[in-house]
Write a protein that binds this DNA or RNA. Structure first.
Lengths: 223, 223
DNA sequence: AAATTTCTCAGGGTTTACCCCGACTCGTCA
DNA sequence: TGACGAGTCGGGGTAAACCCTGAGAAATTT
């Protein structure tokens, strides 16, 4: 298909790691390491001068972090693929990495085949996240969803009408707008809101909005 | 260690599926199928009478769904482990399943070893979700996080002080509380808020809170 | 050094939110 | 049938939020 090799740039402030990765990729016919640098700043320079296809970058480095460098690279040219390499995986890093547009995420203790697989996958436009990372995200999702359900069991003495009011309040309507859209007087709206606040132990509309979002009475996406 | 077999209950309205699963588990020494029923209602009955250790249940059934049945079972006795089995995986089902307290989730095209592994895992108190499900959740997470980052690029002309105010407003503080915690006058707070509202095109504190949550200026978890 | 922005605050006003009370209607349930 | 909860309003009030204008002090930029 193509005789072009995948041009890889290595970025890590530990030479040992760079050499290790380089050794792993050395005898792979379709992969070529064009440079090996030790900082995000150098990496940016390298990207500007001779554009690599894939960057394997450490996430923790002195100076600019891998995430920041990724952001820069992706702004400069989104076609350059970036795979972050990390000692330990944490939800914050994964999240930050994804936000910066990273294409893959690997732990440092990967084996040769996985590494090569990752490089080829991102080069082909795919994403490569290893199982541990997907599991991490899932665990987080799992605990969140479970919390939601247990939260929801707190007795909610609100009447139908009060729920209706709460929904509209949470969607940003003022008392007047509420009265108009429900064809009732402002006085009635005030009565309902007072009752709601009392029942939920809140003190004003602001807290009501926060309560509604926290308890998924209105979805975050609808904001 | 234990001579007790894992007592399994099968629930699926297709006898074919039940028989298939039964066949898979037949020659496993530590697993015993105590009953095989075709509806959620029967399953509940079975749980009441001779408590199984693990339930393998179809998620889509005539009458009560697997999710509803799970909810009932978990309320009756959380020690009974439930694994949902499904034709196709969708985020909604996974989410609903987790909320109802399910311990595992399997596609119908699993092989024998995976099935046995799942039963043993949940019996031992673990959770069993196959890779496809974790990947599904991850994909969802991925697209959400990417969206967030692109959203964030909308220019934000707020000054440092205004950001500070916005944060506190979003955390539920009134003008007076704000003034006190920043050691400035209420008038100053009002001025800042007015400027913020004007810059963001909003009209009151309620909308400000919604804006802050939507744009991740404060995290949902902190609510 | 001058211009601009940011942060601070005030007077004085309008509007909205919140509070406490009472009261009428309409269902439901005992 | 009579008590009760839910929903509907009003009066009359205080407090909070919001608006407009102006303006001095400090920091930042030019």
């Amino acid at each position: 298909m193509s005789n072009e090799k995948i041009r890889v740039l290595l970025v890590d402030d530990h030479k040992l790691i760079r050499d290790g990765i380089e050794a792993m990729l050395l005898n792979t016919k379709d992969i070529e390491i064009i440079a090996s640098v030790s900082s995000g700043e150098e990496a940016i320079n390298e990207v500007r001068q001779n554009k690599p296809d894939v960057i394997l970058m450490d996430i923790m480095m002195g100076g600019m972090t891998g995430v920041e460098a990724t952001r820069w690279v992706k702004e400069f040219d989104p076609a350059v693929k970036v795979v972050l390499v990390t000692m330990e995986i944490s939800k914050e890093y994964v999240s930050a990495g994804i936000k910066s547009g990273v294409d893959g995420y690997l732990p440092k203790d990967i084996d040769k085949d996985t590494l090569i697989d990752a490089v080829r996958t991102v080069q082909g436009g795919g994403r490569f996240f290893n199982d541990a990372i997907m599991k991490l995200v899932f665990e987080d999702f799992y605990s969140h969803e479970k919390l939601k359900s247990s939260d929801k069991k707190l007795p909610n003495d609100l009447t139908k009408r009060e729920h209706e009011i709460l929904n509209l309040v949470a969607s940003g309507k003022s008392n007047k707008e509420l009265a108009e859209s429900l064809f009732i007087s402002i006085k009635t709206v005030e009565t309902h809101k007072t009752n709601i606040l009392e029942k939920l132990g809140l003190k004003n509309t602001t807290e009501l909005v926060r309560y509604a979002i926290k308890n998924n009475i209105i979805s975050i996406d609808s904001l």
